[in-house]
Write a protein that binds this DNA or RNA. Structure first.
Lengths: 187, 187, 187, 187
DNA sequence: CCCTAAACGAGACGGTACGTCTCGTCTTTAT
DNA sequence: ATAAAGACGAGACGTACCGTCTCGTTTAGGG
């Protein structure tokens, strides 16, 4: 017996569509020029409905980047047993994911949201930084590495942020050097 | 011989006042809620005058943080001869300068401006990242250190950015650990 | 069956309030010093809403004078059978309606709008001149008068304009003489 | 004995140039869009100098139309002895002077200035209406006409105003009919 | 021949209104 | 009950212009 409420059912399709549209807009026009009216129109969703799902524009942008479509894999994934190689691989993936100018713009939008809204910053921490930190912690433990994984996580995340906010391709190219330096000698 | 133009001279007092006021506002209310009208009023300056000096709100915020009042010392300054100690000292200073919640808000405003405006990002690069990179380059050269100073600079700057955008005090406390890790082994 | 659209209905109360407020402002401070911001505030209406209803300030002023509150009765009204007496009565009414300095200011605002904006001029023609011309045409036809009613209408309207733009009370007093001269001999 | 002050003499060339330029601008772009900055630049005159000569923008526009370049001859001029023919000739001249769309725009600018500024209205009265009234008064006296010349003057001036503010060519064509009606029967 | 002083051009200023944009809310009808 | 539609109040944005003020400059007498 499917117990169903009376009334019109929630538009779960529209929710996903809104996030996809928002993501495309952040990519193409940049965070500041994203408009809720345009998200609603393109997603075929009422504008008020967006406010039923998220409390503000910043929240939508943060959600659309983090919800499930983050271009950075949060995990070291398949541990080859070689910690250094794992980190290098992850960083290479992440840098590649950010190589496209549009993905960079997307992540920059998240950064803008986080810089001006504490809730978005919390989301960034919970959905990006913390998983990375935990993954590195696990990897360190598995490898018996003595260092502080949180510090290493800060470095890697910070280097990514720096490469994104600076739109400098050279900084992006140096990311792999960051891993080599951080993970270098004793690992 | 000061050769001067005809016409009323620019109101350099007002210009400085505008920057100071803007800085205070970014600190207290956050970048998004800063209003040019309020900057103008508090600084005793016409609103149009702000647009005569800077092309946009982002530019004003970037300028007010970077112009001359950057809370981060861009230089390793007095080289003690010990590269590692110098970096530690600089990072400690920078972390302290960002310790106050208001300074953190100030820098976060710059970050928001840079994330949503390429000109502000350029200013950030020119006024913050590049000096730091050059200073570290010089310090590495003086100490005969073989590493890539740009990578080290990326790490330090990135760790700062991360500590700022994340409002997490723990991340701030880990900054000194970042230096220890980066400058650790061979120095 | 009132077929109605979805969505919040237009704020017709506010619309009427805006016109009333605009009219009062034109009267008291004069067309040039009327501010849309003040109209909006006093009418309890958003400023943008004014632009949703009218395309410009001139249009609002033209509308507020003409919409339904024109101080000049556009018709000869009750035909007494005596064309000359009807015209005299109408002109006396119109002159009286303009006797107050504030009504004069109101109409002068319309004139300023019409002089600097073709749309306002069209509105003036459609809402004031044409009805008067038509009324006189009808009156001439009913009375079997052979003259060109358009010429007479031009004269009466023009004399009113002259009395208004010149702020001279003597010109106002001569208006009845205008009717006597125009309608004089053969009528 | 030319008593002359020391100091640089007023730039009377620039003054005339400013009026000419202002007149051209009123003609081409309309009163509302005339800019003092543009008048000053085109006339090769400092902006402040305009304010040394006239108290406001309205005053400049009024001056530039009335100063010496009024397109309407204020006089019946050569009295042929036939009052009706004189009036017809004058009205025909005036209508012709206003026939060009640019002259019409010029006069409409004066009207806009007069409608929103009492000083401009005074200038209009003193420089246009009063001379016409006086000329008609003189003509009536010379012809021994019994009517009130002020009323006739009001009618003729008003009809001109009406033809100008209404941009309707038909109203312009009816001007001669106005004269015929006013001057018709007993003259 | 300098000197004083009036008028000047240039141009930045404080202020204010404009018309546009977007936000987040509110109110209606439709599902 | 929830949605789409859509108008709304609020308020910041960036532009334009006004009328003022402050300079350095020109151009004439007057000493």
């Amino acid at each position: 017996m499917t117990r169903s409420s009376p009334g019109r059912p929630p538009n779960s399709v529209g929710r996903a569509a809104a996030l996809t549209v928002a993501r495309d807009l952040v990519r193409t026009v940049g965070y500041e020029r994203v408009t809720l009216a345009e998200i609603a129109e393109r997603a075929g969703v009422g504008r008020q409905t967006l406010y039923r799902w998220w409390p503000s524009k910043q929240a939508i942008v943060a959600a659309c980047v983090l919800e499930d479509v983050l271009p950075v894999q949060p995990m070291v994934a398949d541990s080859s047993g070689d910690l250094r190689a794992d980190l290098r691989a992850w960083m290479a993936d992440s840098a590649a994911a950010l190589a496209g100018d549009d993905s960079s713009a997307l992540f920059r939008g998240l950064l803008a949201a986080a810089a001006s809204d504490a809730h978005a910053a919390d989301a960034l921490e919970a959905r990006l930084s913390r998983p990375i930190r935990q993954a590195i912690t696990a990897a360190f433990a598995a490898a018996g590495h003595p260092g502080d994984p949180a510090v290493t996580a800060d470095i890697l995340i910070g280097a990514l942020l720096n490469a994104i906010v600076t739109r400098d391709p050279a900084a992006r190219d140096r990311l792999i050097g960051v891993v080599d330096l951080v993970a270098a000698p004793p690992l």
